[in-house]
Design a protein around this nucleic acid. Structure first.
Lengths: 213, 213
DNA sequence: GACTGTGAAGCCATTCACAGCT
DNA sequence: AGCTGTGAATGGCTTCACAGTC
């Protein structure tokens, strides 16, 4: 296995390529060039080729890439060849939306349980998924071999929730709470900060204003 | 006005610093060093200082930063000194969660209307916000001076929605649909791609596995 | 002629290291 | 002594430009 360090930006784009290729394949297109991919995902042809080159030679010079087999490669590289069992912590608004989010299931992420600290919710179903008490997180993870957790609780509780997951089989946490989680380094975390995105927009809008005097 | 080009990464961190400072201020702390900020948000002291230095000299050598006045500066720089009127398009699960998301209002983003193409929803309220038909987006934006829109519709409709906003007063779009929007360059867009984040996690988990043979 | 794969160059962001202030 | 502000060094990602292949 070729083992250069892969830029994180490349990995995110791989995911975007893959979804784009799926859509292109549905339209019945079988062959595609780096330029066409770039156009579809808002990038440059050179970048597409460089990204792919980290993992192998998937194209044919003078011709382009086979849509289906390129996507197969992407799926394999991203580790999407199987179904990932995922748990979701937090049955509030955001949790509820995420539990139903089709984009996860479509890409092989299956939310198999929801946890909440509100005992009035425990025992109920959230969009067809059973709600368990927070206290059962660790046992559930180990029993069901869950490797990915999504945290969608208020900021004040997020670290506590993360703490319940250390020394379990969890290997990755997707955190929607706007705080930095402190976890052992063998657990991979990623933060999605919704407010930050709006604030960057707001900053950029203001700067555009300033630029166009 | 100092007009170097500000790295986008710096801008996102400013937003994180600001929220962290607010929390620190609530705890009654009045002074803070770059090292303490770095620890709180998961970064390095040098980076904190560099980021701030793009905008001015906010600290006192040998002492640190005044928590309150540094946050005031952050808020001003980010353009958060006022309330932003925001519209939300898409009253599905995700839209519903976003309409209630406290993190937006806390930071000055006020969702004043929701739009949906499902006429059964039009006229109803979503968490206290009225739902209008998609056809009224452009008029509403111009009448109410809305500058930011959040798109939370299925991928297939996102571009159509964006199209209704060109040549209105909209200046920024936060897009949750997993597609690249094509809009005139005076409209600033940002994409939040939920599935991509899980896929990067999945890739990293698999690589960790490979690394620890 | 068209398009990929890739070393080299260029650009941007982070980190270092220290002078300057309190 | 402690901590900021910043030029210089480093590291990483993107873009260029072209040799290689069909």
């Amino acid at each position: 296995m070729k083992n250069l360090k892969i830029p994180e930006a490349t990995v995110s784009r791989l995911s975007v390529y893959s979804r784009f290729l799926e859509e292109v394949e549905k339209r019945g297109i079988t062959s595609i060039s780096s330029g066409e991919i770039a156009e579809g995902i808002g990038g440059t042809p050179a970048q597409v080729r460089k990204d792919l080159a980290y993992f192998g030679e998937f194209g044919t010079r003078g011709v382009g890439y086979n849509v289906h087999s390129l996507n197969e490669q992407m799926v394999k590289i991203l580790g999407l060849g199987k179904t990932w069992k995922v748990i979701l912590v937090g049955a509030g608004n955001l949790g509820s939306a995420l539990s139903q989010y089709k984009g996860f299931r479509d890409r092989g992420f299956d939310i198999i349980a929801v946890f909440d600290n509100d005992l009035k919710k425990v025992g109920l179903m959230l969009n067809g998924i059973a709600i368990y008490p927070i206290s059962q997180i660790a046992d559930f993870i180990n029993e069901h071999d869950v490797r990915i957790a999504i945290i969608a609780v208020p900021a004040a509780y997020a670290q506590d929730v993360a703490d319940t997951m250390v020394d379990t089989k969890i290997q990755g946490i997707l955190n929607f709470a706007p705080v930095v989680l402190t976890v052992p380094e063998e657990i991979e975390t990623r933060n999605v900060d919704l407010a930050v995105n709006l604030e960057v927009l707001s900053f950029n809008i203001e700067s555009n204003q300033r630029a166009t005097n």
